[in-house]
Design a protein around this nucleic acid. Structure first.
Lengths: 147, 147
DNA sequence: ATCGACCGGTTTCATAATGGAACTACTTGG
DNA sequence: CCAAGTAGTTCCATTATGAAACCGGTCGAT
């Protein structure tokens, strides 16, 4: 049976996963943030099959995360570009990356990390803070209905 | 054919998605952070089929995200508990939740948000900062090989 | 203008993952 | 001791995924 749609669920985490919680979408967004914009670039970078890539790109466009725009270089092909909504996924990718760096064994191919482009220094670890600035752990938060 | 394993890929984002990038794992972790610990609690909360849940829990335990411990209440059943590694996923869930709140239509059932348990106030938005404290956008970062 | 390569898909088919339901063995409350 | 609950496992139908072939439009060089 079809995967249950979580789009109507109240929890925003579940709704987000419903949209970009599959195996490829976030990797496509990652590549788009790095500047990729063409079908073949994504395909080569990810090694995903063309039919799946087609389908994922279509969903990302439908969801307003990517948009199709005429290619910047004037070619007849069009380019997939991140919208503001898509760029908003950046924090999620940073969080995924930091957890991976801290918790998953690095293949000896070489450790990768996200760095500030200007200084080359690694970026700070994400922090969860209350409105008054206090650092919050998982136990000090809850998800609740708000007006 | 089998899904390609990304565990040996250098990019920490891809490695993380390889571990928890499926439809259910992060929802299980979300519930575990809320205090759930038993098979039937997860099953009821998520509506996932038992066989899938079994399999996901097994993987999460294998990956050291959950661990099986004797139940706190002294019953013969055991409880799934988050390890430190699992609690480290908190930031990812916060990022997912914030993006969902900001970018996905809320079902009129009611808007939910993550709040500071103590004050009841919504938590701050995540910020990506350089080591010197500057706020960074996607374009000001890169993923690179580091020592 | 033409040829071959490339681009961005679509179609087809085999295989893997998922979901539902029934089944099982053990535990627990009454 | 019995009925209900717990934590799975097994079986089967359906769905999603992946590889490869195919296809029309585009590009670059001649």
């Amino acid at each position: 049976m079809r995967r249950k749609s979580l789009s109507a669920v109240a929890c925003p985490i579940a709704r987000t996963l419903d949209v970009i919680g599959d195996w490829w979408s976030l990797l496509i967004v990652r590549d788009a943030l790095r500047g990729m914009s063409r079908f073949s670039e994504f395909q080569k970078s990810l090694g995903v099959s063309r039919n799946i890539l087609t389908q994922r790109l279509r969903v990302l466009v439908e969801q307003g995360i990517l948009e199709l725009a005429p290619a910047a270089d004037g070619s007849a092909y069009s380019a997939y570009r991140l919208t503001a909504k898509g760029r908003g996924l950046f924090a999620i990718l940073v969080a995924l990356g930091q957890w991976g760096q801290d918790n998953l064994p690095t293949p000896d191919a070489g450790r990768m990390a996200m760095v500030d482009r200007k200084s080359g220094q690694p970026i700070r670890k994400l922090e969860i803070r209350a409105s008054d600035g206090r650092l919050l752990g998982p136990g000090e938060t809850m998800v609740t209905r708000v007006a």
